[in-house]
Simulated assay, not measured.
Amino acid sequence: MVTLHRGAKWKIAVYAEQNHALPHFHIECPEHRSSVTIEGLSEIAGGVPKGVLKEALAWAAAHQDELRATWKELNP
């Protein structure tokens, strides 16, 4: 697992696992977790509070190349 960014109460992480679904990252906060596609920035599982989602997606939109590269490195 690589944490790419930490917000005030949330973080964005990419995991390395066998049989991973399509390229995605996780938004994690104390009691919530969401999986979001890298290409479309759409939630595919879970859910985080709307304010967290808005902040995290803004960061992700500006860092999609970094997310893609990290995904490819961890999930060759």
Rank of each mutant, 00 (worst) to 15 (best):
L41F: 13
S42G: 00
H20R: 09
A8T: 12
S35Y: 09
Y15R: 10
L57K: 11
R68L: 03
S35K: 12
S42F: 02
E73V: 02
E55I: 05
H32G: 00
Q18I: 04
A16Y: 11
L41I: 12
G46P: 10
I38C: 10
P49S: 02
H26I: 02
K54D: 13
L22W: 14
Q64N: 03
E28R: 14
K9R: 14
L22R: 15
A56V: 06
K11Q: 13
L53F: 05
V52C: 03
T3L: 03
R6H: 14
L4Y: 13
H26K: 08
T37N: 13
E55V: 06
L74V: 06
G7N: 08
G46D: 10
A21F: 12
K11C: 08
H32Y: 13
A16N: 14
Q64S: 03
F25N: 05
H24P: 07
G47W: 05
A62Y: 04
E73P: 02
P49E: 05
T70D: 10
H24M: 05
P76R: 03
H24Q: 10
P23L: 08
A21K: 14
S42K: 08
V2L: 08
T70V: 13
V2I: 12
E17I: 05
G7Y: 11
M1N: 07
K50P: 09
K54R: 14
I27A: 01
K72N: 13
G51L: 10
